[in-house]
Every structure is written in structure tokens, then in C-alpha cells.
Design a protein around this nucleic acid. Sequence first.
DNA 1: CTTCTTACA
DNA 2: TGTAAGAA
Length: 246
Amino acid sequence: MGDGAGGGRYRREDVARAAGVKVRNLRYYQERGLLPPPRREGRIAWYSDDHLTRLRLISDLLGRGYTVNGIAELLQAWEGGGGLSGLLGLERELTRDWVREEPVTMTRAELRELFGPAATAEDTRRAAELGYVTVDGDLVTHRSPRLLDATLALVREGVPLADILDAGEFVQAQAAALADRFVGLFRRHVIGPAGLERLSAKQLQHITEAVTALRPVAGEVVTTEFARAMARRVDEEVAELLRTEQ
DNA sequence: CTTCTTACA
DNA sequence: TGTAAGAA
């Protein structure tokens, strides 16, 4: 959070890699109006954090089966609401903290050292496929230090990495479903049927505040319910173990 | 030489 | 979506 969020400090290749899209598609998205043009400085194009956020949103939506045109419409509706600055503000609110973690980069050797012989190249490939890491030559970048730590903790307890990745894939699907559910609620009851198209600056402000207020609620509900489910399940498991060992 | 664009398959 | 060719 040191320097201003405005400017632009990514080159074409950098944003593309960070967002997990191909460089070729930057231009494509631009042409389709999904991505604002970068700031130009001579022959180099500078992309900002806002571009990166937008790019991640686009590739995520695309990955879930939305069409390019569908996304264009959505984005257009948003822009109609509060102008570009309002849109970018809301977009930031919607995704903050969920994508804000600072990635960690290490060499393959360092990765092996962390995981020990348990980690195969196949595991790395799979982790990349699931979006946990991106591989660039000898460098491996993990999206989330927290997830990396959690994975390491499990591996050190003897859980096979392949099984952890299976669990990760499952959790991703469930998490996406949960997020869809919450976003659906939000859309229906906070934004309303009118959509964002003709909202005043004040209304947009209210929505932004609502997002800020409600985001922790969604997390709260999920962690609480998860804790309860885990407690129940663990109790059952313990009871079962005690039964069979008698 | 590198970074982008244009244009075509 | 890949890529050859040209502009800057």
C-alpha cells in the first residue's frame, strides 16, 4: 500500500501472468470492451491494479462459463451506474481480501525442500491446474501463503499431497457454490431487480457500504457452520474409534 | 533488439 | 487463438 493505487506498474506480460490469461487475449478483451485500455508511455503499455482486478474477474467469469458478450453486458451495466471510478470502487470492494493475498515465489528446489520427497512434478502440475500455483520456468508462485501453510501442515502430518489436492478441488467447487449463493442473495435483496444500470451516485455509495458490511457476514456464517459441522463430525469419529477399540 | 499492432487463417 | 510481418 506504499505508492498510489492509480498509475500502472505492470507490463503486458506481467498482468497477463498475474491474472492467468494469455497475452494475446489482453487485446481481445480490450477490443470487446471488457478491459479499459492501458496507459501508454512510448511503446510500452502500463497496466494498473484495477486492470489486474478486472482481468481476474474476467478470467474467473469466463472459467465459469460466462460468454464474453455476457460479461461485456454485465460490465456495461455497472459502468452505467456510477461512472468508471464508481465501478472500479465497487469492483474493488467486491473482491477485496478474497484476492488480495500476496503470492509467494520460490524455486523448484526450495519447493522440494519444503515438501520433501512427497511432492512430485505431477502434484505441482495439478496444483497449477487448480490455480493454486503458477509455474514459470524454474520458479513456482503460490497464490496464497495461508493455503501453502495449511498444505504444509497437512503434509507434515503425513497426508498425501495428492489427497490434499483432491480435497482442494472439492472445496473450490463448494466455495464457488457458496459464493454464488451469497452473491445471489445480495443481488436480489440489496441491489434489487432494477440492477445497477440507473443508480445514482448515492445509491451506489449505499451498495458499496452494504458490500463492506455484508462481506464479513458471509464469512462469519461459513466459518461458524463449518466449525459446527467439524465438531459434530469429529465427535462421531471419536465415538466410532472408541467403540471399535473396546 | 524489444514491445505492440495489424491482419489473416 | 496462433502467428507472421511491419511500425515504433
